[in-house]
Design a protein around this nucleic acid. Structure first.
Length: 1053
RNA sequence: GGGCGAUUAGCUCAGUUGGCUAGAGCGCCUCCUUUACACGGAGGAAGUCGUGGGUUCGAGUCCCUCAUCGCCCACCA
């Protein structure tokens, strides 16, 4: 390795070298320290006061990465989030914590499956459809397809890992996890089993968000609303004459008119509703209508959900409403609820692909009663047109109005969601053990109102432990849980954790008993740690639509035994892939559920599963709960919520203490970055053009608490890659740091003491410059600690920037140049101070710019670091081989020196005035000018002590300082507070006299013009007042300048 | 429709219990290749802090109104 820093900073080489150095040192790896966990250590103070560095008892600091989806490479948003996490981890590691950052990836069920399918299609290869066909024919199509997805996953997992490493992420790479690897699979099985056993997982027939394209159910939050230009169709349903039910009186018909945006669902109508408070229509409640096309007779019911029409209303619904609402329980969530309230039949008229069908809940005999046959097999949109056309032809279409409204679309396939009645598995998140616990977990009163069950006496280990930053996101979290519905967890996909349930539907108790299954299960369920658990629903005397699954307790197959004649849907959950049990179940005729789990089920377990749960590992004991979760706000509901509920449920504690919600990165126009817009930026591209440190620095600088980050994107002509000039800031900072380091090392290296001789000097001996810069250092360390503790990454970077560039480089380095290389006490002290400051800067910068700081740490003997202790009085900088492991600087606040700061500020002002004058008069940089300063009182002595500094920084020769120094002839003067700074020799008196004389003439001319105008009676009386005033003001200004110029002329003699 | 956030120099943003003569970076203008750095240095111009009210000795900061933009949630009559 070189002994000195190269002239130019080569980010790419440094990144490679430093990464190898860290890997060789195994610097990222941590082992759990069994003696203490986050949960014991952290409550009283999660942020600071963590100065137990290098002692035996280390506090854990744990971050579990939000696992990126293996669907695609990481983008800038990930770069931001992972920069934040790495900053925190590296900071805490340097503070002496046992810091660990656990990496991993997410299988991202539907997203990955869809992307792989799409790619296969575009490549013209056999795609999902074809494998489904194979599977149907018994040829293991499922396995083959999953193998292809696995390939994709391997590829992208490698890509993502590489990206994170290139960014410098100091994850414990030995602990890399994947949501679908064997350890995580075990956690998923255990969690599912426990929830199943505890009655928190049930099978329900409900309206789900059905994606007819991918043919799977979606969670509520996988549905995106899109504005659609649609129509309102007003359709007339003939009233059945009272007393003549079943007959249609062709001659003298009455109608009710329903309004709908979805005419095709009318096939499944089972009622028409009116508001019981509707004075005009309520009398029709109890009557019946004959549903056109289908000839189904359906009741008119009263339900307050119905909006009473009001054409004047601002509300679109009231404006468009007809007062009659068609009720289609199978195809609309609200109608479904109305149906439940009124015990209406549920008639599903569509197949899973969105075509009209009488095979999925519409009894063929009911369908055959009317004329609906021609619609069977039509796509829902075709059927819509056909039905509208039918109504038109039969003179039953009253009106059509255009209507813009939003419609749910699949976030994957982007087709409109069909509310669809189907059998799905649900987690009963509305249970107080899940939802209630999550609400109670929130800190600072957030969540305490959610505590409804006073029976839970006192705090139970998790309450009030969860804190959001920025705080406002606690509201999002709370609101979500208050309105949550049970969570549909089954997905009709192949890529995912397969649901560990074996079922037999419509089976009699006799059959179950006969196979001996009930005996096996009884025996197993009595064990303290059973492998199987069963539930059933009795479908004999109730339609399965309403019946939920009944979880059963040990020994209670009795009920089935007692009613062997009944028919059941029978479900058995297996805790593990126990082949003996699988054999028993399948012999008995049970079949494994083909569905997989919602991807969020496994990511919800992430903080547990990465620690090896359900095994009682040392990691689990020490590192769950973790310390901080850093994530994007769009994921608070999808992910954070579920982790909190699961962790509390399975382990009785929160999964993490702090949730930091970071900003979103948008493009220059405030749009989301996305592939379709082509405005996405690959972090690797930025690393190539600007360097990893520059990227991290810039991202951290832009991360404020309130604003999303706008990132103007440019296309680099040479590479064709997207980049942004925003990252120049970071690159420039790196460059500056590099060069300041080179300068310092040169100065320290030249001297015999290497900058260590003055280290034990006393404060009183320090020069003003030393006192001042150490005061600034003390303030900076404090500011940086506070910023990082409060997740204020921008403030952290800004404080570094100001101290290093503005104070250290612009002023201190320049100030000490004359003495820095001298073999004097002052020179020694300056070198020690410089070494300490730069060393501290490297340490403080390391979390955000790890590569360059590590590089600058190691190379030269005279340089900071290399195991060398750089401490000086009040500044603790113990030696360390590597920067990554160096102790975080500890600086005494006693170094804050307000007197030195005041003196320095005064000196800076004088220098500023001098420089201003020099610039204005075009004095060449090296030309020394003569300055005289008129100053009184204490300030006189302050400035008097700064003569050398003024000389160095202002390029002046000081001719006089004092209250009554004579004003030099022909001097240029400036006022600084009560001081007067005068520089002579800049003005050629004759030329200046001429210039001023000319100006004097101009001013006098304009003065007489203004006076003339004001003396004009007409003007003074008639012109608008403000104009007159303006003229007066102008005159006053001219007078003032005249006086000034006159004085100057007099001064020139 | 409900909620949250934003609106400060040409651009991107700071401004944490009300005291600001409102800051930074980029860009712009002038000067400078001086032996750490032109990815640099010195200086400069540039804002009635979205609108309209209110509270206060004092408001970018607190309250209300409106406008514009963004996000989240709800909703296929």
């Amino acid at each position: 390795m070189n002994n000195a820093l190269d002239k130019n900073y080569d980010a790419q080489t440094v990144q490679r070298e430093m990464w190898e150095l860290w890997e060789k040192a195994n610097a990222f790896h941590a082992e759990p320290d069994a003696s203490c966990g986050v949960r014991d250590a952290g409550c009283e103070d999660g942020q600071n006061a963590n100065r137990t560095a290098h002692t035996a008892q280390r506090k854990p600091y744990v971050i579990v990465i939000p696992p990126p989806n293996v669907t695609a490479a990481l983008h800038l948003g990930h770069a931001l989030n992972n920069t934040i996490q790495d900053v925190l981890i590296r900071w805490r590691r340097m503070c002496g914590d046992n810091a660990v950052w656990i990496p991993g990836t997410d299988h991202a069920g539907i997203a990955t499956q869809t992307i792989v399918d799409k790619r296969l299609q575009t490549e013209g290869k056999p795609a999902l459809k074809d494998y489904k066909k194979l599977e149907a024919e018994g040829y293991a199509g499922r396995e083959q397809f999953i193998a292809l997805v696995q390939q994709w996953k391997d590829e992208y997992e490698a890509t993502i890992t590489n990206q994170l490493k290139k960014m410098g992420c100091s994850c414990d790479w030995e602990r890399q996890a994947f949501t679908m690897d064997t350890v995580r699979a075990k956690a998923v099985r255990e969690a599912f089993f426990q929830l199943f056993k505890d009655g928190l997982i049930y099978r329900g027939k409900r309206l789900v968000n059905w994606d007819p394209a991918t043919q799977t159910a979606l969670a509520d939050d996988e549905v995106e609303m899109e504005e659609i230009d649609g129509h309102f169709w007003y359709m007339k349903y003939p009233l059945v004459k009272e007393g003549t039910e079943g007959l249609r009186d062709k001659g003298n018909e009455e109608f009710v008119t329903v309004a709908t945006t979805r005419p095709e669902t009318m096939l499944g109508d089972t009622a028409v509703a009116v508001n019981p408070n509707d004075p005009i229509r309520k009398h029709l409640i109890g009557r019946k209508v004959l549903l056109p096309i289908v000839n189904r007779e359906i009741p008119i019911i009263g339900d307050e959900y119905v909006v009473i029409p009001d054409p004047e209303s601002e509300d679109a619904k009231a404006k468009y409403a007809s007062g009659f609402l068609k009720v289609t329980p199978a195809h609309d969530p609200n109608d479904y609820e109305i149906g439940q309230r009124h015990h209406l039949p549920v008639i599903n008229v569509m197949a899973p692909d969105g075509t009209i069908s009488d095979q999925h809940g519409w009894p063929p005999e009911d369908c055959a009663k009317g004329d609906a046959g021609f619609l069977l097999g039509m796509d829902r949109y075709e059927a819509r047109e056909a039905i509208v056309e039918w109504f038109r032809k039969n003179d039953l279409l009253a009106e059509v109005k255009p209507y813009r409204h939003s419609v749910g679309h699949s976030y994957r396939s982007h087709v409109a969601i069909e509310p669809y009645l189907s059998d799905q598995w649900y987690v009963k998140v509305t249970d107080d053990r899940l939802r209630g616990a999550a609400l109670r977990a929130m800190a600072d009163g957030e969540g305490t109102e959610g505590r409804r069950d006073e029976g839970t006496k006192g705090k139970s280990g998790y309450e009030g432990q969860l804190r959001f930053t920025p705080e406002r996101y606690a509201k999002t979290f709370r609101g979500w849980h208050e309105n949550i519905r049970d969570w549909c967890i089954s997905r009709q996909l192949w890529w995912g954790h397969r649901i560990p349930v074996w079922s037999q539907l419509h089976v009699t108790g006799h059959d179950l008993n006969h196979s001996g299954l009930l005996d096996y299960i009884d025996a197993e369920q009595k064990k303290s740690s059973p492998t199987v658990w069963f539930t059933y629903s009795d479908i004999t005397d109730d339609d399965s639509v309403k019946k939920m699954l009944v979880p059963y307790v040990p020994g209670s197959t009795k009920r089935v035994r007692n009613r062997l004649g009944d028919t059941y849907n029978f479900h058995v959950c297996l805790r593990s892939d126990d082949s003996e049990w699988i054999n028993k179940l399948e012999t008995a005729g049970l079949v494994r559920d083909p569905d997989v789990l919602d991807t969020w089920f496994s990511s919800g377990l992430w903080p547990l599963s990465v620690m090896g749960w359900p095994e009682e590992t040392a990691e689990l004991a020490a590192w769950n709960p973790s310390s901080t979760l850093s994530t994007a706000r769009e994921i608070i509901t999808l992910w954070v919520s579920r982790m909190v509920m699961f962790n509390i449920y399975f382990r009785g504690c929160v999964p993490f203490r702090d949730v930091f919600i970071h900003a979103m990165i948008q493009d220059g126009e405030g749009r989301k970055m996305s592939k379709s817009l082509g405005n996405g930026v690959d972090p690797l591209d930025i690393i190539a053009t600007h360097g990893a440190d520059a990227m991290r620095f810039t991202l951290a600088l832009m991360t404020t608490q309130t604003q999303d980050v706008r990132m103007p994107v440019e296309r680099d002509a040479a590479s064709g890659k997207n980049t942004s000039p925003k990252f120049d800031v970071g690159r420039n900072f790196c460059n500056k740091l590099w060069n300041a380091g080179r300068f310092a090392m040169e100065v320290l290296g030249e001297s015999r003491d290497g900058g260590t001789k003055g280290r034990r000097d006393e404060v009183k001996e320090r020069s003003l410059a030393d006192r001042w810069i150490l005061s600034r250092l003390a303030r900076t360390v404090k500011a940086v600690d506070e910023a990082l503790g409060a997740f204020q990454f921008s403030a952290y970077v800004q404080a570094l920037y100001d101290f290093f560039w503005r104070d250290l480089c612009d002023w201190y380095l320049e100030a000490i140049k004359p003495v820095a290389r001298t073999d004097t006490p002052e020179g020694e002290a300056a070198r020690a101070t410089l070494a300490a400051c730069l060393d501290a800067v490297l340490r403080m910068s390391h979390p955000v710019m790890p590569f360059i700081t590590e590089k600058m740490w190691t190379p030269a003997p005279g340089s900071p670091g290399r195991g060398r202790d750089r401490s000086i009085a009040g500044v603790e900088l113990p030696g360390s081989e590597l920067c990554i492991n160096a102790a975080w600087p500890k600086v005494s606040q006693k170094l804050v020196d307000e007197d030195a700061e005041r003196r320095w500020a005064l000196m800076q002002e004088v220098v500023g005035a001098i420089r201003n004058i020099r610039n204005q008069y075009g004095v060449p940089p090296r030309q020394v000018v003569k300055v005289t300063i008129r100053v009184e009182g204490i300030e006189a002595s302050v400035i008097g002590d700064c003569v050398e500094l003024l000389k160095t920084l202002g390029g002046v020769e000081v001719c006089g300082i004092g209250a009554d120094v004579a004003e030099p002839e022909g001097a240029v003067k400036a006022t600084v507070g009560s001081m007067r700074v005068m520089i002579e020799g800049l003005i050629d008196p004759e030329a200046e006299k001429q210039r001023l004389g000319k100006r004097l003439a101009e001013l006098e001319k304009s003065r007489s013009a203004l006076i003339g105008r004001l003396n004009n009676k007409g003007y003074a009386d008639k012109a608008p007042a403000h104009l007159v005033q303006q003229t007066r003001d102008q005159l006053a200004q001219v007078e003032a300048e005249l006086a000034s110029v006159g004085k100057m002329l007099k001064g020139l003699g």
